[in-house]
Amino acid sequence: MGRRVCMESVRGAPTIGGMAIDIDIAYVARLARIDLSDEELERIGRQLGGILEHAALVQQLPTEGVEPTSHPLPMVNAFRPDRVVPPLERDTALTQAPQAEDGYFRVPPTLEAE
């Protein structure tokens, strides 16, 4: 629910300075799959708040009708032909694996089904 409050403040007029940006930092860390202590989460949350306050400047520019840019240069249709190239040797593929077994990468059991 804290997040909903935040969204409103983001949309609201004062988009920089004094704006309390509320971040559910524990949720973000889980999304990013990084195991951080409460103390670390608290510190990083605070730092991100400061950075986001500055980053929120982007909301000050009027962008009505402006298309977003995801790629700096106007290019389209970069393809490759459907041709097979030799794959890596299996030993090469596995050589950097922290753990391998019978030609597979080995990992601890998973909690989640996909």
Partner: peptide, 22 residues
């Protein structure tokens, strides 16, 4: 397809594990 979506590795089914990788 003969090769994978984003690389030239063979896309065929049934190869030994981790032999169609790059």
């Amino acid at each position: 397809t003969a090769s994978k979506m984003f690389c030239g590795c063979p896309a065929q089914f049934g190869a030994d594990p981790n032999t169609n990788v790059c």
